[in-house]
Design a protein around this nucleic acid. Structure first.
Lengths: 340, 340
DNA sequence: ATGAAAGCGCTAACAC
DNA sequence: GTGTTAGCGCTTTCAT
């Protein structure tokens, strides 16, 4: 690698390195002719300023560190995309790391990013994450950090999350409002937060409308396609079918689609299906999934916005909790019984 | 932001900063007891080494700069994911930039990454990119660079690409081998490289098997869903339907799906559809698309592997051209007429 | 208007 | 074993 330095330009022009530095930063000290000369030499010699050196003595890197659990999950790739978009607009760079849902990797990534002296961190925890020591250290070091989607509670950092319980309730309200009362739920595992809140919302809405909550219609499984399939099979085996199924996420919904079709049931004529997800993916479903849409771009944007504000001290650090509104998109996979 | 430096530890322990530096790097000079003392202080005081300073005098950053045109395109997010995977494994970091298919942004991103003194670059050009000046400069600076997917030819860099023409031919061969002769093609625009090669492959295979190429069965459109729909409508309007449609990519295929279903045609019973794409997405199609699979992870992995080898001088720079094999996945959207 | 000196946090080379 | 000196490429005083 060949690198031209300011001092090379200085030598070439027989001036001091400081003059070059000032000229490059358009310092009023320097005469216009000199600036012209310098800029010319810069082009001619192919000088590219060394940001590392600049960062070292400014103690500001214009770099944001991102930690996501997994990029294979398209949700996160959209989140990251929107973050980079905004960062670029504001002249920040992004170092992207992936934890593969491993607590140890998450920790290593964060240490690495701190070592790089990023100006701030955007973190979505891995599913494993229990040990919050590193976060209290970040707090002590006063490094701005914003959690998104998954949060270490009580660590004293700002966060951007969805309000799952509220989203579930308002969606169920709509489905019930459209004339349905027989609604099953393919839940995740009640252990994990995400599944719990959605399930609670489901129960709350039914109760609100005086619809009895049937235990045999809440089927706990996992969060993957196969879980949707097996839950559907289980439901079918029980014999007593609901009109609509509310699924904990889009992969489970797709599993339900497959199982339903294999059982010769049409969607939405024979069985309606809706659930959590995000529109970019569920667009592909046939029929398009009626979805409680969690917009990854909104989340990414709010998170990095908040972080940059905290970095630039426009907002108090660690005090903000933003809820991203979920949007209910009524599409093809559920058919209204009652007109709006 | 609060940062502890080696000198702070030195002061605390009443020793020289150099001793700290050496102890931290486990230098044989230093006694075991001293190392213990230092490491203890490190923990206690929350010292995190400043990589910026380290990079400045080692002139090595262990950082790779990536430029992709667009992360919304899931293909690229998988590519990036696999790159980060491998980079992390080899203790490299990744700065990720997105050009949004803009030449100007691509250029700015690259300059930025060079300024950060990344050890190497992984670049997929924007669709606009014409001006190759920056690439000749990179060549002059001897910065290792590997192009992937889209390449600036003759810039003297290594590259990793798919061999579209070959992939199309071998796939068409298989479809023809399964008993089909009436095969239409929804092409992109012949102006763009990607569409051209695929179309050439289509023609070449038909000709090889003595099947006349019908001009009215090569329908040029764009690369988006709506283009697949309109191409299908056009085909339908012509009245003379093929048995199978070969589409230039998966979005066009999905458009064809939609239009076919609306026209009351069943896939694959009434019409078969297959095309370029990648399996992660086309899995969602109903029925699953028979696809010429371009594996993004393979591409990402080969690209960063090659780059790291060039960085570490295990391979000559700029001399390698790797073709990623495309894999034909025979799935549900085309039904064999003849047994294998 | 131009330049000399000092320092950002770290490491390599060379004393003691 | 431990410490001193110098330098990575840049910027920020402060002289001239």
């Amino acid at each position: 690698m060949i690198n031209i330095r300011q001092s090379d330009i200085a030598k070439e022009l027989n001036i001091s390195r400081v003059t070059v530095s000032k000229a490059l930063r358009n310092h009023p000290d320097i005469s216009i002719e000199m600036k012209k000369k310098v800029n010319e030499a810069v082009k001619r010699m192919g000088y590219v300023p060394n940001l590392i050196a600049k960062q070292l003595n400014s103690r500001k890197t214009f770099t944001i560190g991102i930690v996501v659990p997994d990029l294979e999950n398209n949700f996160f790739s959209y989140v990251v995309d929107s973050m980079i978009d905004y960062a670029t607009e504001k002249d920040y760079r992004v170092i992207l790391t992936v934890s593969r849902e491993k607590e140890s990797v998450e920790k290593r990534n964060i240490e690495n990013l701190i070592g790089m002296r990023v100006d701030g961190l955007l973190v979505c925890n891995s599913q494993e994450t229990k040990d919050t020591l590193i976060y209290s250290q970040i707090k002590r070091m006063k490094i701005p950090l914003v959690f998104f989607d998954r949060v270490v509670a009580d660590a004293g950092f700002s966060s951007v999350v969805f309000d799952d319980r509220a989203g579930a309730i308002s969606s169920l309200d709509k489905v019930i409002g459209a004339g349905f009362t027989m609604i099953a739920h393919f839940a995740g595992f009640s252990g994990i937060n995400i599944g719990k809140e959605r399930c609670e919302g489901y129960r709350a809405s039914l109760e609100k409308h005086g619809i009895p909550v049937r235990k045999d219609w809440i089927i706990e499984g996992g969060y993957e396609l196969k879980d949707g399939q097996s839950s559907f099979m289980k439901l079918l085996a029980q014999g007593d079918m609901p009109e609509v199924i509310f699924t904990v996420n889009d992969r489970v919904a797709l599993g339900a689609y497959k199982a339903a079709k294999e059982a010769g049931l049409r969607i939405p004529e024979d069985i309606g299906i809706f659930g959590y997800g995000f529109s970019e993916i569920t667009d592909f479903f046939d029929p398009q999934l009626t979805v409680i849409n969690q917009d990854p771009r909104k989340m990414g944007l709010e998170a990095i916005r908040l972080l940059l504000n905290e970095i630039e001290k426009k907002t108090k650090t660690g005090q903000n909790k933003i809820y991203i509104e979920e949007e209910f998109l009524w599409r093809k996979s559920v058919k209204r019984k009652v007109k709006k």
